[in-house]
């Protein structure tokens, strides 16, 4: 499929291009806000859903070769709707909205494709958000060691920076930190 010219917005999120990110807000925030407010939500909900959707795009599409094949706004809006529906489902207000959303989408292949993409991105960002929550429960030393290790710093460099005795101590600590993180994730995030 040919790359859509809106690919630049996905790239902007991955790279952090301030000007284009503001353009995303300019173009799409009013529409999302209006839709959420018309569907049992308020402006704060809309803002929340909008941010989470952009994070979902980051999580889903910034780690691989990805070519956007549809307008950015369509993907974003589709994820926003999905997230808002999930939020409402938790609040047990969803039923009427679900019917409405399903009626709104035609059964064309494109609409299905978009719904599927949104579902994947939302699931991906759920996992990432839960990893973030549990990561923040680790000790500061763990967080720093894992971050430095992920940036490719050597065991010796990490030992020096964090005041640990040697690289073996760093590896042992990294190992314990990963185990703890995994354990917290299993306890709190397994669906």
């Amino acid at each position: 499929m040919p790359t859509h010219p809106d690919q630049k917005y996905v790239d902007a999120l991955c790279r952090g291009d301030n000007r284009l990110i503001e353009e995303i807000y300019q173009q799409h925030a009013p529409k999302v806000s209006q839709w959420v407010c018309n569907n049992n939500g308020n402006t704060a909900d809309a803002q929340d859903v909008f941010q989470k959707s952009l994070m979902a795009i980051l999580a889903r599409y910034c780690n691989q070769d990805f070519n956007l094949s549809c307008p950015f706004g369509a993907l974003l809006f589709s994820i926003c709707k999905n997230l808002h529906r999930k939020g409402l489902r938790q609040n047990k207000q969803e039923e009427s909205l679900r019917n409405q959303v399903e009626m709104e989408y035609s059964t064309t292949e494109e609409a299905h494709d978009l719904l599927e993409k949104a579902e994947e991105a939302v699931e991906k960002s759920r996992i990432q958000a839960c990893l973030e929550k549990t990561f923040n429960q680790l000790t500061e030393l763990c967080r720093q060691a894992l971050q430095l290790n992920a940036k490719g710093h050597s065991g010796e460099a990490i030992a020096e920076q964090l005041g640990m005795s040697n690289r073996n101590a760093v590896y042992a600590r990294l190992h314990d930190c990963r185990n703890r993180w995994r354990q917290l994730y299993e306890q709190q995030c397994k669906s």
């Binding site: 999120l13 991955c14 952090g16 990110i21 952009l54 994070m55 980051l58 999580a59 910034c62 780690n63 990432q128 990893l131 973030e132 990561f135 894992l146 971050q147 290790n149 992920a150 990963r178 993180w181 995994r182």
Partner: peptide, 14 residues
């Protein structure tokens, strides 16, 4: 987990 660690600085900025 690896993806999270890679993207974390960018998430914080965003």
């Amino acid at each position: 987990m690896a993806l999270f660690l890679r993207q974390q600085p960018q998430r914080e900025r965003l």
